[in-house]
Structure formats: C-alpha cells, structure tokens
Design a protein around this nucleic acid. Structure first.
Lengths: 122, 122
DNA sequence: TTAGATGCAAACATTTTGCCGCGAT
DNA sequence: ATCGCGGCAAAATGTTTGCATCTAA
C-alpha cells in the first residue's frame, strides 16, 4: 500500500508540505507513485484524522503529519508554516465549551493560527 | 468605483460568501460587473485589511466584511460559517505575546476557528 | 495624457475524476 | 472472480492575467 509510504514521507518532514511538494519528495524514492495517488491518499488520511490539512489564505493546502500539535504560525512573507505550542488541551477544551454553551453547536475542535513574520524574514 | 459596491454588498451579507456567491448577488443590482473585477477587488480589499479572507479546508475562499469579529465556527456538514464571539482582544493579545516570547516571531494576529456541526445539521 | 480600473476571454494552477489494468483476497 | 487500489491523462474547478477600452484627474 502506497498510503503508508505517503504517511511515512509526510512524517519525515519537519515542515508542512503541499501535496505537490510531498509528491516531489516521494518520487525520489518511489518514482512511479503518481500525483493522483498522493492527492487521493492525502484526502483519505485527512478524513480519517491521521493527518491534518492546513488551509492557508492565498495558498495551496498544506499537510501536517503530527496530529497532536494543533497550532501553527504562518509567515506572510515567505509562506512558511511553523509549529507552535502554546497553552494545552485544557485551554482548547475551555474554548470549545464556551462555544458549546453560548451557541449550542456541536464543537469537535478548535484551531488557533498565528500570522506575522518569521525569524528569517525579519 | 465598483470597489464600494462590492464592499457594500459583502457587508450586507450575514453569511460569509465566496467570491462567486458575492458576484451572483452583485449582478442582481449591477449586471455588468464581471467576476474578474470581484476577484480583483476582493484581493485588494483583503490586502488592505478592509475585509477578511477565510481559508477553509476543502472549500473555496470565503470573505467576511466584518473585520472585528475574528472567530468563526465552521460546520463540517453543510460548510456554513458562523460568527463566534468568545473571549476578547485581551485573550488574543495574551496568546500573541506568548508566541512572541517563546519563539521571537513578529506576530500580527491570531485567528481561532472552531469546527463541528451547526444547529441545523445536528 | 497618463494612470488606474473594468470587462471579456483566455490562461493558469490545483485538485478531482474516469478509465483501464493489476494484485490480493 | 471480485474488489479496491494505483497510474495516467483528461476534466473540473477556482482564480489570475493579458489586452483593449474607458474614465477621471
């Protein structure tokens, strides 16, 4: 199954690659894997919750193989995405509960993204 | 200038329309405005900070004419986006400062998005 | 008269799909 | 034999751009 190759390759990234970047990396070791397969499996993995899809304004979708770190810092200069660990699950749950109580929605999760300028770009 | 028409129409929405939805609404009153103009002006307005572009996973870009309410709840069933007001600017600033202190990035803002199921879809 | 804005259509990039073949159960 | 997965290319989608035109300063 190619799914495992794709998942392993994604996890080997410290950055958060797009499907295209991931495919470029994968074909170095598995030249026959097609882009469609990468896209298909990325979607399946994201639906299963095995990976996280990061939606970025004015940019393609990026993927994160680490499902535990839910926060990202996005540099508006270079487009880089960096992991951020602020607060904890408690804080997230507190926010989720606040939304549940105030609006009645069924809240699955919350994601906080920071934007600005990264160290290299300053 | 069509920019004002576009901005006014966006502000008349209680929902957060895509560029396409916004264009459909605009041509009801101004039939000659083209999609390219809508896209162009949306980008300019978003760059100026007059409107907010909302990036959604597996969906097109949506726009928000209200720049003050920075939080959204996204329904994964119907794709609807709803405004959420939890916490305040203080909380945001506290998070921003935490990221600044821990990582040294220049943090412009943070956005918290909640996902789950909305009232209609429950 | 110049600079910017607009409409139209074509171009573009990203992502999805159809179809066929393959391999495992 | 069947069923799902994968490769390839084509399609679909959303967004941007080139160009000619028009308007306003």
């Amino acid at each position: 199954v190619q799914k495992q190759i794709i998942l392993d390759t994604l996890k080997s990234f410290s950055t958060h690659p797009s499907a295209d970047e991931l495919h470029s990396e994968i074909i170095k070791s598995h030249p026959s894997i097609s882009k469609a397969t990468v896209y298909r499996n990325m979607r399946h993995l994201a639906e299963k919750g095995a990976i996280i899809q990061i939606a970025v304004a004015n940019d393609v979708a990026r993927y994160d193989g680490c499902v535990d770190c839910h926060q990202h810092f996005i540099c508006e200069k270079c487009g880089g995405i960096f992991d951020v660990h602020i607060g904890g699950d408690d804080d997230s749950e507190k926010l989720n509960d606040a939304v549940r109580n105030k609006y009645g929605y069924q809240v699955d999760k919350c994601i906080t993204s920071f934007t600005g300028t990264c160290l290299d770009c300053i």
